[in-house]
């Protein structure tokens, strides 16, 4: 194991996959010239040349469209959106091309495209540079979605995404890039579609992912003995296809469920998880399902207002306490 930052972990994945398979290349804005705004592409251009590390004009439509074409043509493109918010510009490419082509042409061609989308709130990015949009894309059939919460999975999931014959949207939280974590030595792949239980308990299941998972961990840390052996913590890791079995097995054991994500609560991934649990395990629930997510407003620039909108550790702590003590 080595301690590296989340950004370095993704960089390791890129280097290893580009070295392993000459079809893998990357394109996006300021990747070669700047190394990515979060340092996640640093040095790639020197190592692999500008042919495989390509700077593009500022046109997300063109970037995603070219990625789809390259993938269909037999390459394995990794394309960078700069900010997940800009996926909106390339919406037709994502919604009607990337997600549909394999199906519409009867699987004649693979579409091994990885769409890297840095999302989430960090340092007052304001309304157009802070969103968590996974729920919108979860709704679209034909695309896999992953959202790592730590360096190990950042590397493992990126490698798995590159090797997957389907398009994968890789949501990487901007605030996680600089955080350090342990990454296993040698080849490391995190399977897509498999959640991880990081803490076992018998009284409350907490499902989370991406940055908010680290906030849930912090909440449990603060609660200490209060949650020891009681709270079962699940890092979802993959949004689509969702590891429903792990969630259901846990809820059948603990009988209580809390879902925490940074994305807006309304119509979020938490709503989907609640619905699945209600459909398949309602009779195991001994308390209402509780969801924590952002309030339904554009993310403000003002730091105090930003904290007001996005879930904080305190809110998670009081939900955990409320559920554990039968007060919710």
């Amino acid at each position: 194991m080595r301690e590296v930052t989340f950004a370095e972990a993704t960089l390791e994945a890129m280097r290893e996959e580009m070295a392993r398979d000459s079809r893998v290349f990357i394109m996006g804005e300021d990747i070669a010239s700047q190394g990515g705004i979060f340092g996640q592409f640093k040095g790639l251009a020197d190592q692999f040349g500008l042919e495989r590390v390509r700077d593009t004009p500022i046109s997300e439509t063109a970037i995603v469209g070219a990625g789809i074409g390259a993938a269909l043509g037999g390459l394995i493109p990794v394309i960078d959106m700069h900010f997940a918010d800009f996926l909106g510009v390339a919406m037709d490419e994502v919604l009607n091309q990337m997600s549909k082509i394999r199906y519409m042409f009867g699987g004649q061609a693979n579409l091994p495209l990885v769409l890297r989308a840095p999302d989430g709130v960090t340092r007052s990015g304001a309304a157009q540079h802070s969103q968590s949009l996974e729920a919108i894309f979860m709704h679209i059939p034909g695309t896999k979605i992953v959202a790592p919460s730590n360096a190990e999975d950042a590397k493992g999931l990126l490698k798995a995404a590159i090797r997957d014959p389907n398009p994968v949207i890789y949501f990487e939280h901007k605030d996680l890039f600089r955080r350090k974590g342990q990454v296993p030595d040698g080849e490391h792949i995190t399977p897509i579609g498999k959640a991880r239980v990081t803490r076992e308990g018998d009284s409350l299941t907490v499902v989370s992912y991406s940055r908010m998972f680290t906030e849930v961990e912090a909440a449990c840390q603060q609660l200490g003995d209060e949650v020891e052996g009681k709270v079962e913590l699940i890092d979802l890791r993959t949004i689509v296809p969702m590891d429903v079995e792990t969630i259901l097995a846990s809820v059948r054991k603990t009988h209580r469920l809390l879902i925490v994500h940074e994305a807006v609560k309304r119509g979020g991934v938490g709503a989907e998880i609640s619905a699945v649990v209600a459909e398949k395990a309602v009779e195991y629930l001994d308390a209402p399902i509780v969801r924590i997510g952002a309030k339904p407003y554009p993310i403000p620039f003002s730091p105090p207002l930003e904290r007001e909108i996005v879930p904080q550790v305190d809110e998670i702590i009081s939900a955990i306490r409320g559920l554990l003590n039968a007060r919710i």
């Binding site: 009988h255 309602v282 009779e283 195991y284 629930l285 001994d286 308390a287």
Partner: peptide, 11 residues
């Protein structure tokens, strides 16, 4: 009138 109970309690 039916008692207020959680689904798991009912089960």
């Amino acid at each position: 009138q039916p008692a207020l109970a959680t689904p798991f309690a009912k089960k």
